[in-house]
């Protein structure tokens, strides 16, 4: 038996911390914000696997988030299926779409890949908006039921908090396993140099497709969790700006960093809440912060703060 590694210990500590926060927080508003942080962490993590580790940018990731949300909404509310049947459907749907879109799109690189994923994301969000009969159109979809298991309903904020963070924790562990495996090494090799990677015998197209599908699945799961938390979804939650927001979470938190995803998601979930205080200035301040962070700390806040700290310590030592 191997000794538990650093990441496992970090996860155990994190789980304990998250549980403590969940038990101690009574305020419904805070619990809700924490739930959204969890959902966004899952989203950021999903994109980080694709973008941070494998180096494949996606400006349309919110589409998969939306596919998860709308699939479960339509199946559970319109057709009355149990959400637990809708869940595999949402996942299969996301996987199928990722497979079909990924094959041609992942051949592109750089800006062109960005544009391809952007186009895909826009088309999906337009479908959500225009397919009135199924999605409810621009005004949204109402009446999504809460999750229930063996008579126990996840209809309180606390129970949902635990559900969401358990899922997040699961994917933290899973992501670490994948990153440290043959597959993870192949993905990082593709990031560092695609030519060299294929010269090592890596089927780069296949690897990229695999991680794209996994990433889409995780985003779809986040959408599922989102839909059953808010009971109401509308297309703009899954549009272009949402995709950009996920990318921002990854970049600000730190590319190729699992805990960075948590950090980035936390920051970008809390920031708008905090900016409500600015009322009409909210959008302006948000845009400004985004620009400033990217101009001065392009490697992300986590990395940037560590670098600043280290350079100041070096100065101190001299």
């Amino acid at each position: 038996m191997r000794k538990p590694d650093k990441h496992t210990i970090a996860c155990i500590l994190f789980a304990a911390g998250a549980a403590a926060v969940g038990l101690m927080t009574d305020d419904a508003y805070y619990l809700q914000v924490l739930i959204f942080i969890g959902i966004n962490t899952l989203l950021a993590l999903s994109l980080n696997l694709l973008m941070g580790y494998a180096g494949q940018i996606s400006l349309g990731h919110a589409a998969f988030y939306g596919i998860g949300a709308y699939t479960t909404a339509v199946l559970s509310a319109t057709y009355g299926f149990s959400p637990w049947l809708a869940l595999p459907a949402a996942i299969v749907m996301a996987m199928a779409v990722a497979y079909i879109v990924g094959r041609p799109t992942l051949r592109l690189t750089g800006y062109y890949l960005g544009m391809g994923t952007l186009g895909f994301g826009m088309i999906v969000s337009i479908v959500f908006r225009e397919w009135h009969s199924v999605t409810g159109g621009a005004s949204g979809f109402v009446g999504i039921p809460p999750l229930e298991i063996a008579g126990f309903a996840f209809d309180t904020d606390r129970s949902y908090y635990f559900l969401v963070w358990a899922v997040v924790l699961f994917f933290f562990l899973l992501s670490r396993r994948i990153i440290d495996s043959r597959v993870g090494r192949a993905l990082r090799a593709i990031h560092d140099g695609e030519h060299a990677a294929s010269a090592m015998g890596i089927d780069t197209a296949r690897m990229k497709l695999h991680i794209f599908i996994l990433s889409a699945t995780m985003a779809s799961l986040a959408g599922f969790l989102y839909a059953h938390q808010v009971y109401f979804i509308s297309p703009e939650t899954f549009g272009f700006m949402a995709s950009i927001k996920i990318v921002t979470m990854v970049v600000i938190g730190g590319m190729a960093s699992i805990w960075g995803s948590l950090f980035g998601a936390t920051l970008l979930t809390i920031l708008p809440e905090w900016l409500h205080a600015f009322a009409d200035y909210e959008m302006m301040v948000y845009g400004l912060i985004l620009m400033l962070v990217m101009i001065f700390l392009p490697q992300g806040l986590t990395r940037g703060i560590i670098d600043l700290y280290e350079s100041s310590r070096k100065k101190h030592d001299q």
Binding site: L174, R177, I178, D180, S181, R182, V183, G184, H210, I211, L214
Partner: peptide, 9 residues
């Protein structure tokens, strides 16, 4: 080696 994405998970 042969470990795939499921195997690694």
């Amino acid at each position: 080696t042969s470990c795939g994405i499921f195997g690694s998970a």
